[in-house]
Design a protein around this nucleic acid. Sequence first.
RNA 1: GCAGCCAUAGCUCAGCUGGAUAGAGCGCUUCCCUGCGAAGGAAGAGGUCGGACGUUCAAAUCGUCCUGGCUGCACCA
Length: 587
Amino acid sequence: MQTAWQHWTYDIARRVSATLGIHVESSEIVAPPDPTLGDFAFGCFRLAKEGQKNPIVLAQEIAKAFEKQGSDITQVTATGPYVNFTLATDAAIRRVIEDVEEMGEEYGSSEIKSDQTVLLEYAQVNTHKEIHIGHLRNVILGVSLINVLKHRGSRVIAMSYHGDVGAHVAKCLWKLAYSLQLTANSITVEAVTGLLEKISDGDRTGEYLGRVYADATRALSEDESLKDQVSSVQQKLEAHDPAWEKLWQETRQWSLDEMKVIFYELDAVIDRQYLESEVYERGLRIADDLLKKGVAKISEGAMVVDLEEKKLGMFLIRKSDGTSLYATKDLALAELKAEEYPSYARSLHLVDTRQAFYFGQLFETLRRMGFDKPLEYVGYELVTLKDGAMSSRKGNIVTYADFRDAVIDYAKQEILSRHADWSEQKVEDVAWDIAMAGIKFGMLKQDSDKIYTFDLEQALSFDGATGPYCQYAATRLGSILKKASQVTGNRLQVTSTTFDHLTEKQLAIVLAKFPRVIEEAAEKLKPSLVANWCFETAQAINAFYRDVPVLESTAEMREARLNFVAVARQTLTQGLSFLGISVPEEM
RNA sequence: GCAGCCAUAGCUCAGCUGGAUAGAGCGCUUCCCUGCGAAGGAAGAGGUCGGACGUUCAAAUCGUCCUGGCUGCACCA
């Protein structure tokens, strides 16, 4: 069906076209800079140029000839080269209420259910490492992209990919074992059992393994000769040595368990979890095959693909010690995905921009392999700290768990300061919702091609353009509805009364923009557009709350406005849900 | 050196398929709770849209060049 926004812009475009007999597109109908000018505007520049006329005169002619009869337009004025159109308040609000009530959860979804399968790879968190706020941005972005794309009618397969093998794992396990004088060759299954028993339950986490990895990196940078030891550990691992395999599997499980919990916390749905260990052998075969076919060659003992002619440099696909690396596995992963989801229409890779060049190399190499399925790289900028980038070497990594706990603690304090009578459980639950809103909105409101500089103090603010601000606006509307139903208990209906308040019309117009915003967010893969719409809507709701009495108005007006309040609350709640934010009953 | 991204108010950012006086939030200065919840609202100060040139009736927006910052560019992922 045609939404209110579409109706208005198409209708105005058609009626403007009728005045002069010249075609005007609905996309040429825009919003004026100031609502006092009108609700829609048409600039006459193009027509003026084509007809060799003065745009100011043209605007006056259009305004005079415009037929309002039968439209929602109540006023047409020419202001300079623009024709401004004002919507009738009552008609505008009714149309929006009808849309939302009729479409419900489908409001803003695509009319055409495309049914295309979209693969989205995100949450590439490695095992044997801590999960930090850099990963957090990736997961939060991924979740909102999944929500938005699904709403627009795609069948989204959410996939995660985890580096559970490779150099970083070898370094970590090497450090773990060598601290007990266990070497690549001397280690036994029994020794591994003994080693694992020495590690306390509290240390059986990715975070602990991350610290071990950092220690290993430090040791290696101080003593180059240790590199050979790590290399032999990696070779043992790739050869499935029983002792190393046991140590690997056991420690890997700690990481996987931890991830499962965190993904659950963040509402990160994962339909298919890929592990590098599933694909690296296939990757090695692909590398050999590429060498045989002459696509790859040997350079300095390693296997490379020469992409110089595409200005993509040399692409390393197998290390000189024969072991695999990131690229080896990614080649195989692309093939595996295509096997498992043969009819996919798009394959998105949500990875930070530092890897943009690498993905260019990867995709080009896949093409040379004869891989002809579509591939898309979706970049986003990194998360950094005020005093520079996070790195295990500097030891300044802000983990997700620490950050989350800090925000939850702060949310609890805020709740207790205004609801001393709440049960402990209620405080816990609401603090969770508010903290997640703060974290997610904070990361989503700014465009993903902007570096996110993490600032705890700023992240702990719940004032202004924040998730809790948006929740609060929805909660206040909920509070009105709750009070109303205690009195009447009736189902809300549109009555014959007339909406007449300018502030409520402005809220209606913001709500009418929702479908367009979701569409654009899906097209451009920009969840920030949804976040900014939510904030704009919350602001309009707060203005409505300030200016328009609901419970205190006349009986018929009250019923009608309650209806509108329900619609506004539902739409904002839905927008927030795309960001992974839920709205508590009270806060 | 080559490539990518970024540059808008003190700070963090919207706006960018060209159009009407450049918008928010934070911070700052004043106000507003016996009022549908003050996690709110009102008012104010604060800007050569990094610089130059170009395209155009019209440039924060497009193009070229420059400057500054960040990030990549073979055995990390």
